[in-house]
Write a protein that binds this DNA or RNA. Structure first.
Length: 754
DNA sequence: GTGAGGAACTTTTTT
DNA sequence: AGTTCCTCAC
């Protein structure tokens, strides 16, 4: 057990005091992951605990995987049997096997935020409420908040305080929306993210035999990033460890940055009250960063009132001062950062992967990307719109999900008319209303469609039902990969995408193939016990941006939001967009507590840096297409000035550009074609109007090989004619826009020559 | 039912 | 600057 020798005293305490309630307060960079890893290894090696009896909850799946790998290095392949994962993934797994207790199917669907918002939107519409008042985001937040505090819709409706609160906010119907939303999810056999935790609590509360089973199973319970757990999560861990009391939570109140998601910093501040004989261990020595960085971070966080006493220090060198960069615009900010990275690489022999650019909002990545590309610096963006949120992926997933769970309303919505089969929105609404009015499942309506709907649409629905039934059989008879393949082909998704020869269409086709590859990998993975398609889908639903980070060994600069950077470290860090209203975010400044959360976020960002930290801000920035003036963030002034210096790249203040931007670069894009609005994207072809003198020719004589002109796409050559159907189509290869297939009854083509 | 085109709105972080 | 909703014509 050599590894114990490398630990300092509090770290050692954290590893060997395995029994009884323990709280480890771990300052940034204090070796928290090491302690947790060794603690588990110690439990297995020294105490002979079966890994099957250890539950370790982490914040991301990636963190879980890394920890498992590290433990495996110490104790061997036994580590694979540990229960390790995020709250959501571990309890989704448990719910899956206990679903019948709650009246759910074991193959329940997991709704992501997108599905949830769509559902709320349609409920608000059905209830004839104003969607300006009941915005899906706001409603979902409110429902989510209630669930995270374990308030069911029944209690919500009963409680006069919530009602009064909602009424004073002019949203008296929230309770009813919550009720309908819950019922619809239940009927659809679906749980949203919050339900996974909420229903686990219900399960443990109402089925004591089940609770008992898991209490007996988990002899040791550990929770990482405890500062970011909500009440619902806290109660689950408390219940699970109630018999043996072997609960160990690890966290840092100074790094609590998920209050918006229901994380309650009181969990960590009040933990002592719940466990009077709690052992508290503080890890205060920072091994990661220079003195300047540690002290600067301390000078920031000391301004917050809500915190535990802690004295983070380091024995490392002072290092260089933090550098402050000022740019005239967001684009120049990108250039300054890129050239600074270039210079640092040259002078200090650093790799791209030693750098991280951190920002407050995802939209800030754009300017940085362009600058890095121009300087030929490789980069990767972690998070943002993930692979699994792309339309084509969600479409295929919806087919897979629906083929497994025929009552999944949101999936049905996506696929019933994609590819087009003549079942429009109004027909779909009728189907949903029929299901709700007769209190039956969607599938029951679809299979008896002729009693609800006459004629042409009914036939289309019957074809759809036959298709889904076929898929269901495929899933039962074949393995997940083959079934997914058959569904991708049979649904017509592959064909539709294959026919789209545009650049975007090609990449969409490749993405679908990529998803099929992911299923293949899943099926071939020897570590997976349940290889059904349903199990694959549930796993995918809980994958996040960081988990998805495939090429982390490539030499690339990492770009991500500060939230995503939690738990990571880099030699050099750039925190960009240090502007008032952006960071701290304007939306967070309504109360003191929120300012403190923004400050903790800044603390997290600073403490990611090992050697060198840069802060940058711009004097003006594009927002909704307009250039807006910006002021430096108050956080810059809050850093003790002895740790910070102004960079030599700092721009002069006088050079601030005029705030009157006219994003009118489109004019030069395609000559002779006018943009119809100043504010709409180039990607939409309808944003261009033909010059007034454009007169289309009679296209009845159009043939392959002819040169044509189109008002929006300019000149091109006909590569293929399709005269088979009622609608004549021509595929034209345009000089500037590539191949497009045009319906000749609509297309305004002018024939030039052949 | 479908697609084109215009207007209006957007305004944070994520399991 | 990009998305989404609405309207209108086919």
């Amino acid at each position: 057990m050599d590894y114990l020798k490398s630990l300092n005293e509090p770290q050692y305490e954290g590893v060997v005091n395995t029994d009884g309630p323990t709280m480890i307060i771990a300052g940034a960079g204090s070796g928290k992951t090491r302690v947790l890893t060794y603690r588990i290894a110690y439990l297995m090696e020294k105490k002979g605990v079966d890994p099957f009896n250890i539950l370790s909850l982490t914040f991301t799946n990636k963190a879980a995987k890394e920890m498992r790998d590290r433990i495996e290095k110490v104790v061997g392949t036994d580590a694979r049997n540990l229960w390790m994962g995020t709250f959501h993934s571990v309890f989704a797994r448990i719910l899956r096997s206990e679903a019948d207790r709650l009246g759910y199917p074991s193959n329940f669907t997991i709704y992501d935020a997108d599905d949830a918002k769509q559902l709320i939107k349609s409920i608000v519409k059905e209830m004839n409420l104003d969607d300006k008042v009941y915005k899906p985001n706001v409603v979902l937040n409110r429902i989510s908040g209630a669930k995270n505090r374990l308030i069911s819709w029944r209690e919500y409706i009963k409680n006069p305080i919530y009602r009064a609160d909602d009424e004073s906010n002019m949203k008296p119907e929230l309770g009813r929306i919550y009720k309908t939303y819950s019922e619809r999810c239940f009927k659809a056999g679906a749980m949203d993210f919050d339900d996974l935790l909420f229903n686990t609590n219900v399960l443990f509360k109402e089925h004591l035999d089940v609770l008992n089973k898991y209490q007996q199973r988990f002899h040791y319970v550990m929770v990482d990033e405890f500062q970011d757990t909500n009440i619902s999560q806290y109660l689950i861990t408390k219940k699970l460890s109630a018999v043996r009391q072997n609960i160990c939570v690890v966290g840092d109140d100074a790094q609590s940055i998920y209050a918006f998601r229901g994380a309650d910093i009181q969990n960590i501040l009040n933990f002592e009250k719940d466990y009077p004989d709690l052992r508290v261990i503080k890890l205060e020595q920072n091994y990661r960063s220079t003195k300047n960085i540690v002290n600067a971070a301390n000078s920031i966080i000391s301004r917050n009132r809500a915190q535990l006493k802690k004295d983070v220090w380091t024995a490392n060198d002072s290092g260089t001062l933090i550098e402050l960069l000022r740019a005239t615009s967001d684009n120049e900010e990108g250039k300054l950062v890129a050239s600074s990275i270039f210079e640092e690489k040259m002078q200090n022999h650093l790799k791209n992967s030693d750098f991280a650019i951190l920002y407050r909002t995802n939209s800030q990545s754009r300017a940085m990307e362009e600058a890095l590309r121009r300087m030929n610096i490789k980069y990767k963006i972690v998070g943002g719109l993930s692979f699994y949120q792309r339309k084509e992926i969600k479409d295929l997933m919806a087919y897979l999900r629906y083929s497994i769970n025929h009552n999944d309303e949101q999936s049905l919505r996506r696929i019933i008319n994609y590819p087009k089969r003549g079942i429009g929105d109004s027909s779909l609404d009728k189907i949903i209303v029929a299901a709700n009015e007769n209190n039956i499942g969607l599938w029951d309506v679809l299979t008896n469609i002729s009693s609800y709907m006459p004629g042409r649409v009914a036939n289309a629905v019957m074809d759809f039902v036959t298709l889904i039934k076929r898929f269901k059989i495929d899933i039962e008879k074949k393995d997940a990969f083959e079934a997914a393949n058959l569904i991708a082909k049979g649904s017509g998704i592959l064909k539709t995408l294959y026919e789209d020869k545009t650049v975007e269409g090609l990449s969409r086709y490749e993405n679908v193939q990529e998803l099929l590859n992911a299923v293949k990998e899943f099926v071939d993975d020897p570590d997976k016990e349940d290889k059904s398609l349903g199990s694959f889908l549930q796993e995918i639903a809980l994958i996040t941006g960081v988990d998805n980070d495939k090429d982390d060994d490539d030499d690339k600069v990492t770009m991500m939001t500060i939230h995503m950077a939690k738990g990571l470290e880099f030699k050099n860090v750039y925190i960009v967009g240090m502007e008032e209203d952006l960071f701290p975010s304007q939306m967070m400044l309504s109360s003191r507590a929120d300012l403190e959360e923004e400050r903790r976020l800044f603390y997290v960002a600073i403490t990611r840096a090992e050697h060198k930290l840069y802060l940058s801000y711009a004097l003006s920035r594009y927002r909704f297409g307009r250039l807006k003036n910006c002021e430096p963030s108050r956080f810059i002034d809050e850093i003790d000035p002895s740790f910070i210096k102004v960079s030599k790249r700092h721009s002069k203040v006088e050079s601030r550009p005029s705030s009157e931007g006219n994003g009118d670069f489109a004019k030069s894009f395609v000559s002779g074609i006018k943009r119809t609005t100043s504010s709409q994207p180039l990607t939409r072809k309808s944003n261009y109007k033909a010059p007034v003198d454009f007169k289309p020719s009679d296209t009845s004589t159009l043939k392959t090989g002819m040169k044509v002109e189109h008002p929006k796409f300019g000149f091109g050559k006909v590569v293929e004619m399709d005269e088979s159907g009622a609608n004549r189509k021509a595929t034209v290869n345009f000089d500037d826009f590539g191949e497009k297939t045009l319906l000749l009854s609509f297309a305004k083509l002018r024939i030039h020559s052949n």
